[in-house]
């Protein structure tokens, strides 16, 4: 699903050159649920942005679903983002003046799905995250957990192959975090690849594979030991 070879990325800030990713090699197969861990500044968000074609990279290769993603035009990138990838952000990033169902339906607007049809589909996805009763509410009338579930519904509506979540529980309390994680697990079980960036150990432990990032390189990879669950 995701194949990264010798990926380099640096930012230029004024006279300084900040080398963020220093040769990443990573292979995520379809249906995996992976977490990327690392302290702040380790490059994990940058890696996620590159995976999500929100950012470009300097050197190396990135394949998504077998397709080389390099130097795409903005239009092409938008198309891939829309069709292949669903985003979930720490701060939800819902559109404030749109209600829940309109927010969920938005990706389909960019696929030219007629309004009635896309709102109907959006309702189905709202139901799936258990929020169909809140369809007419705007984000500021909803709790953090509800907002994140709406964001997840929005990420799912275009039936992507890959869900990218950037600290999806960072703004949530532990109870709602667990609910959101349950949801991710459910999504993963339906066959969608899930990549979660987090710095919380108990979040990453719920995933099937943990990738530790440190100063722009992958430090080690490990699968959580089953025994941990019984500790």
């Amino acid at each position: 699903m995701v194949n990264i070879k010798e990926l380099h990325k640096s930012y230029i800030t004024g006279a300084n050159r900040l080398h963020v990713l220093k040769g990443i090699n990573l292979n995520i197969i379809e249906g995996e649920m992976v977490s990327i861990m690392g302290s702040s500044g380790s490059g994990k968000s940058t890696l996620l942005n590159i995976l999500g074609i929100l950012d470009n990279y300097d050197k190396g290769e990135l394949y998504l679903n077998g397709q080389l993603i390099k130097d795409l035009s903005e239009k092409k990138a938008a198309w891939y983002r829309n069709k292949m990838i669903g985003f979930v952000f720490q701060s939800f990033n819902l559109i404030g003046f749109k209600n829940a169902v309109e927010n969920v339906a938005l990706p389909l607007y960019y696929q030219n799905v007629p309004r009635k049809k896309r709102n109907k589909i959006a309702m189905e996805y709202l139901e799936r995250v258990g929020l169909s009763d809140w369809a007419g509410h705007t984000p500021n009338e909803l709790s953090g957990g509800q907002k994140q579930r709406i964001a997840i519904a929005r990420a799912l509506i275009s039936q992507p192959k890959l869900i990218l979540a950037d600290e999806p529980t960072g703004a949530l309390d532990s109870q709602t975090s667990l609910e959101v994680l349950d949801l991710f697990e459910e999504i993963n079980n339906s066959g969608i690849t899930v990549v979660i960036v987090t710095h919380e150990k108990d979040i990453s432990e719920r995933t099937k594979r943990i990738i530790h990032l440190r100063d722009g390189v992958i430090e080690n990879e490990n699968k959580p030991k089953p025994s941990l669950k019984y500790v």
């Binding site: 985003f87 696929q111 275009s158």
Partner: peptide
């Protein structure tokens, strides 16, 4: 800006 960023992230083309 933020809204447009969101739109782009979920598939809005520059043209749209």
């Amino acid at each position: 800006t933020k809204e447009i960023g969101i739109r782009k992230a979920i598939g809005a083309t520059p043209g749209s």
